[in-house]
Nucleic acid binder design. Sequence first.
DNA 1: CTAATACTTGCATCATGGCGTCAATATACA
DNA 2: TGTATATTGACGCCATGATGCAAGTATTAG
Lengths: 136, 136
Amino acid sequence: MASIYKHAPSTPRQAARRKARLDQVLCPDLLKALAEPTRARLLSCLLKCGRPCSVTEVAECCSIDFSVVARHLSTMARAGLLNFEKRGRVAWYTARREELAAHFRALADAIDELEPADTCCSTDTCACPPQAGSSR
Amino acid sequence: MASIYKHAPSTPRQAARRKARLDQVLCPDLLKALAEPTRARLLSCLLKCGRPCSVTEVAECCSIDFSVVARHLSTMARAGLLNFEKRGRVAWYTARREELAAHFRALADAIDELEPADTCCSTDTCACPPQAGSSR
DNA sequence: CTAATACTTGCATCATGGCGTCAATATACA
DNA sequence: TGTATATTGACGCCATGATGCAAGTATTAG
């Protein structure tokens, strides 16, 4: 059941740093932008395309109103998921492929590098009571 | 600007498989469970603790109503983010640390392994028009 | 059995946000 | 200049879901 941790048990200071790193990458704002099914579909489309796409092009992926697509793309660009460039009357959106991959990899790393139970909650903002003895 | 892709350009069949893999891990259900700020805080708390926590313990992390915490934990357990075990009158929740890390790593991989623009949209469900010539 | 504990569930309220319609704006083209 | 194209913005409707209160259920302790 026990897993292989990338880091051996270490000082409270290091443990606190790892826990802080988790909160840094577990930001709900970015996740919220991804959590909406329509947005996820649009992002998937843009990721697969790999090139800049206009709002019109992306709207053809889905059977929803054009203005809805425009709003979603704008939302995702503001959340940092997409790059945006306006040339003439056309708005070009591109999935920030590498940044997205890096972010999720960082999230996976932050989760992976957490230590097992016995250092629980003694060194950070978590208000959980410290682990009790054999009574559990 | 061009990045180093982990996979050289390959057959349409392989490209389609990579795109399908993306949609598999980009599931909004799991992300939605994470996208709510309160839930993210609760999960962060559980991840840092690393051990099974009761609803009461987790509720002490936040200043919100106990029943709200209980519902959020139940939601996340249903979404596969937490393990759940009821012993006596106490419900124990544990963050599925390794599974979460694996999922985000798979997501990062799926994004990373996508190919550049020139294979766009010709082999899967995406309705984007195929990439035009130099007119863009 | 009774009471306390730990949690779950029903209910009402309220905020957020997705959606579509339509008007407004900005740019390109003839 | 007039018209078509591409996008943005304002507005209202509506569904979802987060929250808190309170009642209900299940388990343990005395």
